[in-house]
């Protein structure tokens, strides 16, 4: 685990934005653009119909979508993205039952110098296969992943699939025997967050974010459990796992952290069921520059919130 938090961290994900339905279009609800002001400005004027652009495609297909290379694609902000050095994006729809709550879009760039992995795993014939993923410079790991499949209960994707619960894995590449550990170790991947992505139409999807030491996806991860089965009827959540480069372990069996709806960033997700991207207020983001707090619904109800900070 990293102990020092460098001020000059080069994050793997450069832009995170939340699009929410308004009438028959998706409009921008919030985002963190990491100083890419021109791209932010162009996004603020954008909206997407169902099937239009990347957010619209994720809405229409009701599944996570990975897009590598914008030129000549259905991506609508290609010019602004190219100018900002952004080359790839992943859109993750948030459905509560059949209802679309939002689409989270993350954008990455600088492929040759940043390592990490954002992967979408899809169930085919009883196994999870890689649907697509963005790996930056981790080309060998990308190849290994394309040739790996996970049965139920095995590895981070298989574990998430079987337990229907987000999971946070440590030390992916060190002495531990993570299924793709050898290659993960070479790529410098350390921490993995896996989450189920409910797809109302058809199919089972698991999203994994694998963070590397040098160009992390996040320096702090949290998993909150908001199910009635865990917290009762109150609209609250308890922290069930978490790890932070600064504070170390965040979980405490004896003193569980609990938040209620509308309390802080996690509380806002509990209250709205929509992802929250917050930046520029370190007081709200555990001392980090930004946070993405992402809801996972199960059976139409909010079940978990995962958050990643950088």
């Amino acid at each position: 685990m990293d102990q020092a938090v460098g001020a000059d961290v080069r994050p793997f994900i450069q832009v995170s934005e939340v699009w929410v339905p308004e009438g028959d279009r998706l409009v921008l609800a919030g985002g963190c653009y990491g100083g890419l002001d021109a791209f932010e400005a162009s996004s603020r004027h954008e909206s997407f119909a169902k099937g239009e652009g990347l957010p619209g495609k994720a809405w229409d297909e009701a599944r996570p979508v990975v897009l590598k290379g914008f030129e000549g694609s259905y991506f609508k902000r290609t010019e602004a993205a190219s100018a900002a050095g952004l080359t790839s994006a992943v859109a993750i729809p948030v459905f509560a039952g059949a209802k679309l709550k939002a689409v989270l879009v993350v954008l990455c760039g600088d492929d040759a110098n940043r390592t990490g992995a954002i992967e979408v795993w899809q169930e085919k014939d009883g196994l999870l296969m890689l649907d697509d993923g963005y790996y930056g410079a981790a080309k060998h790991f990308e190849w290994v992943s394309q040739h790996t499949h996970f049965p139920r209960g095995q590895g981070l994707p298989g574990g998430v699939w079987a337990s229907e619960t987000p999971m946070l894995m440590r030390d992916l590449g060190s002495g531990y025997r993570f299924i793709r550990s050898e290659s993960a170790g070479r790529a410098g991947l350390t921490t993995g967050l896996g989450l189920p992505v409910p797809a109302p139409l058809k199919g089972t999807y698991v999203l994994t974010l694998l963070s590397a030491r040098g160009t992390p996806i996040a320096r702090r991860f949290e998993i909150w459990d908001a199910r009635d089965a865990k917290v009762g009827k109150e609209n609250e959540a308890v922290l069930i796992d978490g790890i932070c480069a600064r504070d170390g372990k965040l979980w405490d069996e004896d003193n569980t952290r609990r938040v209620a709806a509308w309390q802080g960033v996690i509380g806002r997700v509990l209250g709205t069921g929509v992802p929250v991207v917050e930046s520029g207020s370190p007081g709200l983001t555990a001392g980090y520059d930004s946070v993405v707090a992402f809801p996972i619904h199960r059976g139409g109800e909010l079940a978990h919130v995962v958050a990643w900070y950088i």
Binding site: L168, M169, D171, Y176, F178, G248, E253
Partner: peptide, 18 residues
């Protein structure tokens, strides 16, 4: 160390340091 948390260390969901 917290012996009852060995299972998440085994599964990879916690590290020994934690």
């Amino acid at each position: 160390y917290n012996r009852i948390m060995l299972s998440p260390v085994l599964s990879g969901e916690k590290s020994y340091e934690e």
